[in-house]
Design a protein around this nucleic acid. Structure first.
Length: 566
RNA sequence: AGGGGCGUGGUGCAAUGGCAGCACACCGGACUUUGAAUCCGUUAAUCUUGGUUCGAAUCCAGGCGCCCCUGCCA
């Protein structure tokens, strides 16, 4: 077992800087060998693939070290939070394959304790009630280069602050009338240390505590306490909280309580997409996408609906790595990861997306042959087969025929021979067009000797086409997705414009009247297929129904022919 | 301008004083009943200047560049 583990690929054994810190802590006995992380989302929106990186990191570390990872909702701001999100977040994390067991916590569970801690700080002379308005406070704060000035209420007596804070809790004051502030240093070059607010007044009912509270703790005060109460060892967060760390430490030190360590890493960025709640909302509200779970969105619900598997997302998070560099991951890596998995797991089927009828004149009318074809033809060790019916009239992909083919086009053209995968060789004899000159039908002849797709004379036929029997094929809808934005970084918009100017107008292509193998009628929601020569597809969880199937393209196959044409 | 971070091929991540490596992307070839997959190969990087050292991506000093910080958001 240990030998097996040590022999896994470099990719898995390489340690990121956080695991290196944990190794050192374990070696020094800093936390008695305990490893306890947490994933602390605020329930104010849907999770996206950037969160997945953090989830995989936190839960993954717990798994690797035989430790624990809590799920904790950081619900300290009732004006933005909702139970709708606490549910979707749990669903997404479970889908990703992680389990917090009985350790589902809420920051709001600790409100009473936090209040007590705040009182302690006041008694210690480390916090005071401030009557400055928001605007005044901003003026007093100074700027990045100018020191701030002390609040006139800073030297208020402990007794008065205690009394005022109690009355804040009792609801005697209006929103914004007063705050509780830490007494640190208004001249600190670190803005977070300029007497930051600990509690604000918010007469707002909370999804968890209802109307019990009208004062709510701020993130910096609350987060460390939450970590401390839960016995977290390594509190992992993103880079922008680096400046907050001295404050995280200050609160815990002043309170004299158990003190986890905060470690920051770089959040995930992906090119050709956006990754912020605000921008997702705009995309949904302005109708650029069909909802939070639109398969073009990088929300976890969108990605899931698109057909990405949770194992591929976990693999992706692993390949992306963990570091402190601001980085932008190429969407191609995400696509590679899902292709890589589906190539191994998705059975192949034939689906004609843009049908062109082919009539095989010398094939007997009414005859039906059932051909047995491999589900995993690239893998000789797997002998799983299915049968597909073959008849005189079939559909092929319209783009697989060209009347005047360029060089190196080895598909069908007048007088040219191709192989129908698993069936026969055919030669195009006649092209039928409508009055506008569009090709509407092909007449071909077949070689009975080539049954199964090979001929006794061993002649080479380079082109191999997928096909479906016209009489047996199943009509379905297919949705093809492309990148949502045309540029690598949609966040950079020209003056006076926003990121939506970069939207790809062709990010969704809906194809109706696609013809697929009849066996697909039994497809289940969790099934994944490779539509041969097209890509990987799954049923759309939102719109597909028995009888009117809708398939989503998760990702296309690599297409070097398309590249050559450019 | 103050503070906090970060600089390794095109993009990411390793190398923790000792041969700069892996993945994706790219390009080329082989094979192919998927123009897929697979296999083989090519190209390509230590921000800069100085110092320490037998030896520096790594240590030291200066410079440059990028990111974050002035919510009663998290």
């Amino acid at each position: 077992m240990a030998a097996n583990e040590s022999s896994v690929s470099n990719e898995n054994t390489r340690k990121d800087f956080i695991r290196t810190i944990i190794d050192e802590d374990n070696a020094s006995g800093k936390y008695d060998g305990r490893v306890h992380t947490r994933f602390p989302p605020e329930p104010n929106g849907y999770l996206h693939i950037g969160h997945a990186k953090s989830i995989c990191l936190n839960f993954g570390i717990a798994q690797d070290y035989g430790g624990l990872c809590n799920l904790r909702f950081d619900d300290t701001n009732p004006t933005k939070e909702d139970v709708e999100y606490v549910e979707s977040i749990q669903e997404d994390i479970r889908w990703l394959g992680f389990d917090w067991e009985e350790r589902l916590y809420y920051a709001s569970d600790y409100f009473e304790q936090m209040y007590e801690y705040a009182v302690q700080l006041i008694k210690k002379g480390k916090a005071f009630v401030c009557d400055l308005s928001a605007e005044e406070m901003r003026e007093y704060r100074g700027s990045l280069t100018e020191p701030g000035r002390n609040s006139p209420y800073r030297d208020r007596s402990v007794e008065e602050s205690l009394d005022l804070f109690e009355r804040m809790r009792a609801g005697e004051f209006a929103d914004g009338a007063r705050t509780l502030r830490a007494r640190i240093d208004m001249t600190s070059p670190n803005m977070h240390l300029r007497d930051p607010i600990i509690y604000r007044i918010l007469h707002q009912s909370h999804h968890n505590t209802g109307d019990k509270w009208c004062i709510y703790p701020m993130y910096d005060f609350a987060h460390g306490i939450e970590d401390s109460i839960e016995g977290i060892t390594h509190s992992i967060c993103t880079l922008e909280f680096e400046d907050n760390r001295p404050l995280y430490d200050w609160f815990l030190d002043e309170l004299g309580v158990y003190h986890p360590q905060q470690i920051e890493f770089a959040r995930l960025n992906l090119n050709y997409t956006v990754m912020s709640k605000r921008k997702f909302i705009k995309l949904v509200q302005d109708g650029h996408v069909r909802g939070w779970d639109d398969p073009r969105m990088v929300t976890l619900s969108g990605i899931r609906r698109r057909g990405y598997t949770s194992s591929s997302i976990r693999k992706f998070a692993e390949r992306v790595g963990v570091a402190k560099n601001n980085s932008v991951i190429d969407m191609a890596l995400l696509e590679h990861t899902i292709r890589d998995e589906l190539n191994e797991t998705a059975p192949r089927v034939m689906a004609v997306l843009r049908p062109l009828k082919v009539i095989i004149d010398n094939y007997p009318e009414g005859k039906v042959e059932d051909f047995e074809v491999q589900n995993f033809p690239h893998d000789k060790t797997r002998n799983e087969v299915r049968t597909v019916p073959f008849t005189r009239e079939i559909f092929i992909e319209a783009s697989d025929f060209m009347e005047e083919p360029p060089r190196k086009f080895f598909r069908l053209a007048p007088g040219k021979e191709v192989r129908l995968m698993g069936a026969y060789y055919i030669i195009c004899q006649e092209v039928v067009k409508d009055e506008d000159g569009n090709v509407v039908e092909l007449h071909c002849s077949y070689d009975p000797e080539s049954r199964g797709g090979a001929s006794p004379d061993g002649r080479k036929v380079r082109g191999t086409l997928h096909w479906v029997s016209a009489a047996h094929s199943l009509p379905v809808e297919v949705r093809l997705y492309d990148k949502l934005f045309l540029v690598e970084n949609p966040n950079k918009a020209p003056e006076g414009e926003d990121f939506t100017v970069h939207l790809n107008p062709d990010s969704l292509e809906v194809l109706t009247g696609c013809m697929v193998e009849p066996g697909l009628a039994d497809a289940a929601l969790e099934d994944r297929f490779q539509f041969i020569r097209h890509g990987y597809f799954c049923l759309d969880s939102g719109d597909s129904k028995a009888g009117t199937l809708v398939f989503n393209r998760t990702v296309s196959l690599r297409d070097t022919w398309a590249k050559m044409k450019k």
